[in-house]
Amino acid sequence: MEDRELILSLLPKAGRKSRPPLAQPPLPRHSADELWAEFGIRLAELGGRIGTREDAEVILARPHILDHESAEILGLHSGGEPIWDAEVGVTTADLAIAETGSLILATGPHRTRLVSLCPVLHLVLVPKDRIVATMAEAFTRLSDRTTVMITGPSRTADIEGILVRGVHGPGDIVVVPL
């Protein structure tokens, strides 16, 4: 017998109960500015920071790679350094989540996943209206493409529990609400 059929034959055939409902805590109503303030606090706790358009321009003086949406926002040409050599990767985000300081980045037409991952600094441009209060809210709006949620800089505590940032992914993350 094929492994699939064997496994399926061995699995218990219990009657299907209805699935337990998920608790839905009431969503507090906040303005986008309030949510961005909360987001900034959470991000800072993780070692990231909120920046301005001017900060972005300073950062772009370093060898960088821009994806085409962030290039459009900044009025620049997309591209730049080869992905494995760039110090700075610039992308947009689809959503920012206030409660955890997280960013949602889906793949999409002409998007490059590695831009948010290979460089040592990830510069993220987020239109101001793309913020939600909770992760639960964000997860009702996910793209059906491969998606990553990023919460702060890459980190490890494998060696004696000591926190180190930037072990494989970017050790710095700067989010610019626009």
Partner: peptide
């Protein structure tokens, strides 16, 4: 409060995507 990367994989790279 949250792990740094939550990678949600929906399949191989699509034709219009640059990598994966």
């Amino acid at each position: 409060r949250m792990t740094v990367y939550v990678h949600m994989i929906s399949g191989p790279r699509r034709k219009d995507e640059n990598d994966g």
